[in-house]
Amino acid sequence: MPPIIDLNKCIKCGQCVDICTEDVFYGSKEGEVPTVTYPKECVHFSGCVYVCPVPGAIRLRFPLPILLVYKPE
């Protein structure tokens, strides 16, 4: 379920909550680790990942239905 937050790394700055247009983090409280309330509304553009000031504190787990199809070598 995208996105995934590392509780040990998150500094609770809320930038991911602020930037997400779909408001996947709806209901998150200021000063707390964001809540992923509506994971299925994620559009996988990674805005939250790239706005996060701490590398690795948030990542997207791309859901199985959207896996890219490719030809192995």
């Binding site: 553009f45 990674s46 990942v49 997207l60 890219l68 490719y70 030809k71 192995p72 070598e73």
Partner: peptide, 23 residues
């Protein structure tokens, strides 16, 4: 173009456009 997440996904999955055609 805004396809950073696509590039991240390909990296995670080991998809290399120099070797793998993508459907």
């Amino acid at each position: 173009e805004g396809n950073i997440s696509l590039l991240d996904h390909m990296k995670e999955e080991g998809i290399d456009l120099r070797k793998n055609p993508v459907e």
